[in-house]
Amino acid sequence: MRARQVRWDRNTKTCLGSWHLLTNGIEGYTHNPGRHEIIAVQAFPLAERPRDAPEYAYVMQWLRVSVIPSLKQLPDCVERDY
């Protein structure tokens, strides 16, 4: 699954950084192939982990937007690299 950090402020979506492959998944979330979804996620640092293990555990807080790409587009993003 590809992921990207996004911040919302008064209905303005600001993208931080670029898309990356999220290999360790998100607890409480199941990806729906064919849908584009924006979810709120909380990241928890993982202590005492092997060097090749993920740095964070991600837990879904809530689903913000879910659309079928051919029917509707996700809100545009203001690009920002921080």
Rank of each mutant, 00 (worst) to 15 (best):
E37H: 00
R64P: 02
H31T: 06
M60W: 07
V78D: 04
D76E: 12
S18R: 02
P75T: 02
R7M: 15
A57N: 08
A40R: 12
P45I: 07
Y56F: 14
P33V: 11
L74K: 00
R2K: 09
V78P: 00
A43L: 13
V67N: 01
E37K: 01
R80P: 00
G34R: 02
Q61L: 15
T30Y: 07
D81G: 03
M60F: 09
A57E: 13
M60L: 15
G28M: 07
E55S: 02
Q42C: 09
M60S: 07
K13L: 15
L21F: 10
E27T: 15
D76L: 07
R35D: 09
N32I: 11
T12M: 06
S66D: 07
W62D: 15
R35A: 11
S70L: 13
L71S: 12
N11F: 12
H36C: 14
T30E: 10
Q73A: 14
K72R: 13
A40N: 09
N32V: 14
N11L: 11
C77W: 04
Q73L: 11
E48S: 04
A3T: 06
R4L: 12
V41K: 09
Y82V: 07
G25K: 00
W19I: 01
V41M: 10
R4V: 09
Y82E: 06
W8E: 15
C15W: 02
A40G: 12
V67F: 03
C15L: 03
S70Y: 13
Y56T: 14
L16P: 01
S18V: 00
E48V: 01
Q61R: 14
L74V: 14
L74H: 06
R49K: 01
P54E: 03
S18D: 03
Y82N: 03
T23N: 06
A47C: 00
P33A: 12
I68W: 05
F44V: 05
D81L: 05
M60P: 04
V59C: 11
W8N: 13
Y82H: 04
K13G: 14
Y82D: 05
R80K: 10
D81C: 02
D81S: 04
T12V: 14
Q61N: 11
T12P: 03
W19Q: 01
T14E: 09
A57C: 04
V59F: 12
M60Y: 12
I38W: 13
P50D: 08
N32R: 12
M1H: 08
N32P: 02
P75Y: 05
E79P: 04
D9L: 12
G34H: 03
W19V: 03
P33G: 04
V67Y: 01
E27C: 07
R51P: 02
T30L: 05
Y56M: 08
N11W: 10
L71F: 15
A47G: 00
A43H: 13
R64H: 14
L16W: 05
N24R: 08
E27H: 13
G28L: 08
Y58S: 05
L21A: 11
D76W: 09
W62T: 15
P45A: 02
P75L: 00
N32M: 07
D9T: 14
S70W: 14
L46K: 01
D9I: 11
Y29Q: 05
P54N: 06
Y58M: 10
R51A: 10
L63Y: 08
I26M: 05
